[in-house]
Write a protein that binds this DNA or RNA. Structure first.
Lengths: 108, 108
DNA sequence: CACTTCCATCGTCGATCGGCGATAAACGAT
DNA sequence: ATCGTTTATCGCCGATCGACGATGGAAGTG
């Protein structure tokens, strides 16, 4: 009767979409993508004009779903888009079709 | 220098993703899609097992981005998936490519 | 060693979210 | 007109979010 999509799958989908549910994170992702090179936190801070701690928190959320990747370079950390995750990011059609949600902890 | 995606576009993208950023809304959308027919609020309430006011609020959020459509039928209101919006729902690739966000107030 | 730079984390604050019950509004039926 | 049904809206509450400043840790430089 109920036949609902199981909660765990729904939650995984929701966490994917939540990663891009904030305009600042959308701007960060687009910014990283357009300048197609790893960028430091300082560069991103200068671009978005928010506090460093705020940007760092946004980057953490984006990396938790493997949407951006990070690589330590000396004392800096270079962030870049994970092209694989861009491709596997779920669409509304995936939800509608009831397809299994991509695993955010996996390799996409 | 800044070259950020303009805030309005970013906010439009964010509101699209926010509509599916809650597991209950994901379940509602999948439920509406699988039973491919207009469904009343009461049916959806029975399926998700939450209070009627809560479900009504979720349906409001989903209709605001035209993701589901509503049609009054007597005293009831029938909700159904907007197939056009399923197709035009933005993907991560759209964000990365800087494509203009689909207008949630338009006809998709 | 000290000192600087770059960044993550912590604590706080106001705002928003997701849930609820209660109420109101719209409509059909009696 | 009244009643019952169906749904939207309101007010409230606890939890989470997004922003900030301050602190602290890791790495390079003197």
């Amino acid at each position: 009767m109920d036949e609902l999509l199981d909660r765990a799958t729904a939650q995984t989908y929701a966490s994917w979409f939540r990663a891009l549910a904030d305009p600042t994170r959308v701007q960060i992702v687009e910014y990283l993508a357009r300048h197609a090179r790893p960028m430091s936190v300082g560069e991103i801070v200068a671009a978005v004009g928010l506090a460093q701690s705020t940007v760092s928190q946004h980057l953490k959320i984006l990396t938790e779903v493997r949407f951006v990747l990070v690589e330590p370079v000396g004392t800096a950390r270079h962030y870049r888009i994970n092209d694989a995750c861009v491709g596997c990011f779920p669409s509304a059609a995936d939800v509608v079709m009831g397809r299994p949600a991509p695993n955010p902890n996996g390799a996409c």
